[in-house]
Simulated scan of single mutants.
Amino acid sequence: MVASRQDAWTDDDDLVLAEVTLRHIRDGGTQLAAFEEVGQRLGRTAAACGFRWNSAVRKRYDAAIAIAKGQRQQLKKNGRAVTAAVRTEFATEAPPSLPQSPPVVTPAATATIVPEMPEPIAGDTESELDAAIRVLMNQKELSRRVKQLEIELANNQMQLKEVREENQRLKKDMETVQDVNEDYKALVQIMERARKLAFLKEEESAKPVFKMDSNGNLERIE
């Protein structure tokens, strides 16, 4: 019986059409096969499914179509790589050899076949021990030197702290001396002004004083 549905397409029908078509694109199938599968599931003709895909559904799945095509290309590449690997493996595989009878081994031959164990070389062992001892001694000396440097660093930091504290103390003393110096200068200026005033008074008192008598003569007063 040929499918001949005439009802409208629903969103679920469009989703089935898109899923099946994208799967066929991804797996390397044809769109015609996809339309036939969708027609069988939805009770529609393959032509109706193809018309619906090209007219309304395809433009909504451009990104998904591009991804499906990329996956199809990747599957093709992987298939070619697997085929080439299998061919190479079969080409390089050695042909099976016929079983051979084990050789007859005589006691004399056995004696000659047994390999001799190499004796340890004393010089190499001693040199390795000497190198290990030197490494340990160098490590010990390095540790001792590091501890010594740490102690020196701690002492230097302590001395630096003391020098900074002494510097701060000297700065304060210098500020105090500067204040005293300013006070001393002010005192000297006051004393100088007082001395000048006293000298002027002495000069004024040392000047002779005269008075006029009844006869009109000037008379010096002591």
Score class of each variant (00 low, 15 high):
Asp11Leu: 14
Ala186Met: 11
Arg193Leu: 12
Arg144Asn: 13
Phe35Arg: 03
Met117Cys: 04
Lys69Trp: 01
Gln100Pro: 00
Ala194His: 08
Asp179Ser: 15
Ala34Gln: 02
Ala48Tyr: 02
Ala46Phe: 02
Leu200Ala: 15
Pro95Asn: 02
Gln74Ser: 10
Arg41Met: 12
Pro96Ala: 07
Ala8Val: 07
Pro120His: 00
Glu192Lys: 13
Asp62Gln: 13
Pro99Tyr: 00
Arg44Lys: 03
Glu119Tyr: 03
Leu170Pro: 04
Glu36Pro: 02
Val104Thr: 12
Val209Leu: 10
Lys207Trp: 03
Glu119Asp: 10
Lys77Asn: 05
Val188Glu: 13
Glu119Ser: 11
Met1Glu: 12
Arg60Asp: 10
Gln73Met: 13
Leu142Glu: 09
Leu136Asn: 08
Phe199Ala: 15
Glu126Ser: 07
Leu42Lys: 01
Leu187Asp: 13
Arg134Cys: 01
Ala131Glu: 11
Leu15Ile: 02
Lys201Ile: 09
Ala48Pro: 00
Gln157Asp: 13
Asn156Met: 05
Asp179Thr: 14
Leu197Met: 14
Ala47Asp: 13
Thr10Asn: 04
Lys147Val: 06
Val2Asp: 12
Thr83Ala: 15
Pro96Cys: 01
Asp7Trp: 04
Asn78Pro: 00
Arg44Leu: 01
Ala48Met: 04
Leu197Asp: 15
Phe51Ala: 08
Lys76Ala: 11
Thr30Phe: 02
His24Met: 11
Gln168Ile: 09
Val20Gly: 00
Ala111Trp: 05
Gln148Asp: 11
Asp14Leu: 05
Asp183Ile: 06
Ala111Pro: 01
Phe199Ser: 14
Val163Leu: 15
Gln148Asn: 10
Leu42Trp: 02
Thr10Glu: 05
Glu128Ser: 04
Val20Ile: 15
Arg87Tyr: 00
Gln71Ala: 13
Trp9Phe: 05
Asp179Ile: 08
Asp13Asn: 09
Glu175Cys: 05
Arg193Gln: 15
Met174Lys: 11
Asp11Phe: 06
Arg164Thr: 11
Glu93Leu: 15
Gln157His: 07
Arg195Met: 11
Trp53Cys: 01
